[in-house]
């Protein structure tokens, strides 16, 4: 500090600001570089995954045909998983927002905790459960495990939406004689629709991207995209992995941008 005392405060402030800016750019480069590299690698004309790529071509996009089964499996799991997660999370959020229950806190905890557990433990937990009840290697096991694991996203998003809701709309509808079901359908749902869709999208995207639970519950017979990428990484090092990654990056990014927009900017 004694050195800084002798320096003109303006110079010192500008110097600090400059250092901070350079630091921020370096970190942002660190954050951006891996994805940029993967996207660039998808267009390589070479045989191997090295950066910078050897040339530009679309040849590896043709290899996607061997990934169609995995893509189909991923979607077949993610859609029902996201639907179940949204209905469970949504009804839990709605009932806790509108009514008081003796077990309310326990329900809220059960709807929030799954995402905080290490995924590998969630996987082992469901594997144990399904072996005990004698059903394994079924795609519904995986769907159910993903729905429980991802319930917290719609639950939290829809709870926020309901908390922001002006209760007088609902009261007006009820006073005018609408039944509870009709009130939910015509008043509450349209007002929190954005949160419901955002919750669904988050769950859908996260299910697509989830690996370890899927691997443990697939019974080693159902390949989802993350499972096939992991397997491919162990045996080959083909640029087609970059192509499928590029596809995944685009889907994830678009899905989350829409979800974030609908939820009204989660981080600002």
């Amino acid at each position: 500090m004694s050195i800084a005392d002798g320096v003109d405060p303006n110079v010192r402030d500008r110097l600090t600001a400059g250092i901070m800016r350079v630091f921020a750019w370096v970190v942002l480069l660190f954050v951006l570089m891996p994805l940029v590299v993967i996207c660039a690698m998808a267009f390589t004309s070479g045989e191997f995954l090295v950066f910078p790529p050897e040339g530009v071509s679309l040849r590896w996009f043709g290899e996607l045909t061997s990934w169609l089964d995995a893509i189909r499996n991923s979607v077949v799991v993610a859609i029902p998983a996201a639907l179940i997660a949204t209905t469970v999370g949504g009804t839990a959020a709605y009932s806790l927002d509108r009514h008081d229950y003796r077990f309310g806190r326990a329900l809220a905890a059960a709807a929030t905790v799954p995402i905080m557990l290490p995924p590998v433990i969630v996987g082992v937990m469901f594997m144990t459960f399904f072996i005990t009840i004698g059903i394994s290697g079924n795609i519904w096991n995986l769907i159910l495990a993903h729905s429980i694991f991802l319930t917290p996203f719609p639950f939290i998003l829809i709870s926020q939406g309901l908390a922001d809701l002006d209760q007088s709309y609902e009261e007006a509808a009820r006073n005018l004689g609408a039944s509870q079901l009709r009130t939910v359908r015509t008043i509450i749902f349209p007002l929190v629709r954005a949160n419901v869709i955002a919750g669904f999208l988050f769950a859908f995207i996260l299910s697509l991207n989830e690996y370890i639970i899927a691997w443990l519950l697939s019974g080693f017979s159902i390949q989802t995209v993350p499972i096939q990428i992991f397997t491919s990484l162990r045996y080959s090092y083909s640029p087609v992995i970059a192509v499928i990654s590029l596809l995944f990056i685009i889907v994830t990014f678009v899905g989350l941008t829409i979800a974030d927009y609908l939820a009204g900017g989660l981080w600002e």
């Binding site: 590299v37 090295v50 992991f230 990484l233 970059a242 990654s245």
Partner: peptide, 15 residues
């Protein structure tokens, strides 16, 4: 943030 760990780890493997 929400992209599978597999692809992000793979990216660093390449880098």
């Amino acid at each position: 943030l929400f992209l599978t760990f597999i692809i992000r780890a793979f990216a660093w493997q390449v880098l």
